[in-house]
Simulated assay, not measured.
Amino acid sequence: MTTTQDISQILELLPHRYPMLLVDRVVEQVNGKYIKAYKNVTINEPFFTGHFPQKPIMPGVLILEALAQASGILAFGSVGKTPAQGSLYYLVGIDNARFKQPVVPGDQLHLYVEMTRNMRGIYKFTAEASVEGRVVAQAELMCTERSVS
């Protein structure tokens, strides 16, 4: 099943809100397989006032967070649950993270995440962020589903 999702649908799947919501749109998703999404990076982002004022660069940890949020959307879609049903996905591991180029205001950060494994509620993903077809970051991510009450 391939789906697209706008911001209102993303808000139903992720508990994040401004300024921590880092996925603007899902352009393609095949549940249990992969997701393609993006984040529009603007000078209005609150982190640019301190990172770095003279040469604004999106922090690498926030690029990883955007990839993790896309992973969460994919995980929710793959099991057919939502946070409203009392469950969340927590990031539990990041391996082999690499940053190749800076991300700056005006860039559109494309997020590609592929689910590589699901075993007993632990999900593994390979993730890649790119700008204009150039890879800017890569990582292997793990998340787990937890009930919240």
Rank of each mutant, 00 (worst) to 15 (best):
A66I: 12
E65Q: 13
D95Y: 07
V79H: 09
F76T: 02
E65R: 11
I73D: 02
T82Y: 05
L64P: 04
D95V: 01
Q85R: 06
K81L: 10
D95C: 01
G93Y: 15
A75K: 04
G77T: 04
V92S: 15
F76G: 00
K81I: 01
T82I: 06
Q69C: 03
E65F: 14
S71P: 12
A70R: 07
Q85M: 11
I94H: 14
G86C: 10
L88V: 14
Y90H: 08
D95Q: 11
A66H: 09
F76H: 15
I94A: 13
Q85F: 04
I73Y: 06
T82E: 05
G72E: 11
S78V: 02
A84V: 08
F76W: 07
V79R: 09
D95E: 14
G93M: 12
K81T: 12
Y90I: 02
L74K: 11
D95I: 00
S78N: 08
K81Y: 13
Q69S: 02
P83C: 01
A84P: 01
I73N: 05
G72K: 08
D95G: 01
A70W: 00
A66Y: 09
Q69M: 04
G77F: 00
K81G: 00
L64I: 11
A84R: 12
S71C: 05
A84T: 12
G77M: 08
L74G: 08
Q85P: 08
E65C: 03
S78W: 05
A84N: 09
Q69K: 10
G80N: 07
L74C: 12
L91G: 00
A70M: 09
L74R: 02
G72L: 10
F76D: 00
A75Y: 01
L91F: 13
S78P: 07
K81H: 10
Y90N: 01
L67A: 02
Y89M: 12
V79Q: 10
L91V: 01
A66F: 07
A75V: 06
E65G: 04
S71F: 00
Y90M: 07
G72Y: 05
L74E: 08
G86D: 09
A70G: 13
T82A: 10
Q85G: 11
V79S: 10
T82N: 07
S78Y: 06
L88Y: 11
A84D: 13
G80Y: 07
L74A: 13
E65D: 10
L88E: 01
G80F: 07
V79L: 11
A84S: 14
A68Q: 13
P83T: 02
Y89H: 14
P83R: 05
A84W: 03
T82V: 07
L88I: 13
S87L: 15
T82H: 09
A75Q: 08
L88T: 07
A70Y: 00
G72C: 12
L88W: 05
L91K: 10
Q85L: 06
L64F: 09
Y90K: 07
G80A: 11
T82L: 04
S87N: 11
